[in-house]
Amino acid sequence: MEMLRVDNIVKQYAGHTALDNVSIQTKKGEIFGLLGPNGAGKTSLIRIINQITGPDSGQIFLEGREIKRSDIEFIGYLPEERGLYKKMKVRDQVMYFARLKGLTKTEAKKRLEYWFEKFEITSWFDKKVEELSKGMAQKIQFIITVLHDPKLLILDEPFSGFDPINTELIKREILALKEKGTSIMLSTHNMNSVEEICDSIALINKSKLIVEGGLKEVKSQYRSHTYAVQFKGMMFGFANALFADFSLEHSEQIDDDTAVAHVKLLKENKLNDLLKTVMPVVEIESVHEIMPTMNDIFIQAVTEDSGESIKQEGGEDE
């Protein structure tokens, strides 16, 4: 079931295009990773979804119908640049934001107490924000984002500035919200967390969408058909057997007669062909495919895209 659909969004600022015909789609109950280098246009897109700014053209659909102003009550947004009113007491502050999201006073109070008890921070109620540490303030910001029980949660760099313990806590909460059926859009540079929690991703570079899909499909799309082969025997003989059909990318001696080789299949060759080639010369112990990490995919996709755009720009000059 579709949660959010972004159709052909274009946004231009004086002198540059922030989003160039970007379309993405997220499913209900999934964690969607919105990736891209700094300045790619992620925050611009997030602000448009949150109706903080409007697009020059294109449409946004929430649960299949075009988004309207009142829908912001169904969205929880944790911006990358976030802060709180320094002089305001924690309790008043959370109540204020909850009520701005349309909760009644009683409902807001009930949920505030639930979250504060859950995080065991009820002693902070009467503290002013300026008395809190950065990590403490970020917990409050997280509570403010989720207090009104949004259907769609948009988190822009949610882990930046958190220590590892709090990062784990927030990660756990994000997964718990997903279990409850909340759809989550996560913008982050932390590729490890993308691997850990995202179901699908979109990669934006220089205002354009360059990669989109489920995490598994994207990984499969970017697989390099490289296998790690562990064997007993001589590395020299193994390498010689490969000829021009395979490429030895990396090798490592584990002990006197055991080694691991990373072999990339070239041309139309399959794993079976590789095994047939090397089985006569060494004794194979194990074989597994080396899948690209999100980090590899990110770097590869962005570099290739930037390379192409540089080429295109060069071509135009000629």
């Binding site: 949150n50 903080i52 102003r69 912001i72 969205i75 947004y77 911006p79 640049e81 976030r82 802060g83 709180l84 009113y85 320094k86 934001f97 701005l100 999201k101 910001q141 403010i144």
Partner: peptide, 17 residues
């Protein structure tokens, strides 16, 4: 103050600027 304390983006995600 709202701008420098970065609270403004949280507020304008709930109300119009």
């Amino acid at each position: 103050e709202e701008k420098t304390s970065r609270v403004v983006e949280i507020v304008v995600s709930s109300v119009k600027p």
